[in-house]
């Protein structure tokens, strides 16, 4: 087989190097743009400070019920749930209607609803009593009848 001329080989290698660098530059610019538009898209960095006070009232081995105005089937709802679970671990967070749910129930509400209104409604509908409203959409409930 005839060897390729140096010019062909060197041109090909230069093309590969330039295309690879172009790819990385393109990725860098796209990533930078995305990060500027959506820093921490699931708001995980915000959850630990939001739940810090509530955590003090929850024993580390607690299985905590969870209620929210956000639907778990949608991305906002599921990211709010997992964000709360990540912040509260090693406490286990389960939907309030889960049989393993303990006497304490965590309310995690979005900023676009009035927390006092939704807390009252949930308390009425699901038999919950407000233990404490921590602001920023975090409310701790206790199940009625639970000690």
């Amino acid at each position: 087989m005839t060897p390729r001329s140096s010019l062909v080989v060197n041109s090909a290698l230069a093309a590969v190097a330039l295309l690879s660098l172009y790819s990385l530059l393109d990725l860098y610019q796209a990533t930078k743009f995305y990060n500027q538009q959506q820093p921490d898209p699931y708001r995980i960095g915000y959850q630990a400070p939001r739940f810090a006070e509530a955590m003090k009232m929850l024993p580390p081995d607690a299985v905590v019920g969870y209620v929210s105005n956000l639907d778990f089937g949608e991305i906002r709802g599921s990211s709010a749930f997992f964000g709360a679970q990540f912040a509260l671990a090693p406490r286990i967070v389960v939907p309030n209607d889960h049989p393993a749910s303990g006497p304490l129930v965590l309310g995690n509400f979005s900023a676009d609803v009035e927390t006092s209104d939704i807390s009252s409604r949930l308390a009425r509908e699901q038999g919950l009593r407000v233990v404490r409203d921590f602001d920023a959409g975090v409310v701790l409930f206790r199940k009625e009848g639970a000690k």
């Binding site: 190097a17 660098l21 990385l24 990533t31 990060n35 921490d40 960095g45 679970q85 990540f86």
Partner: peptide, 29 residues
């Protein structure tokens, strides 16, 4: 060229780490 590529990768990773230090979905979930 590979060194320049590594520099771009580092810049990309640092930018992402600053914006989303907790990683993507499965990292925190």
């Amino acid at each position: 060229a590979a060194g320049a590529g590594i520099a771009l990768i580092v810049a990309t990773q640092v930018d992402t780490a600053r914006a989303s230090p907790h990683g993507n979905w499965d990292a925190f979930a």
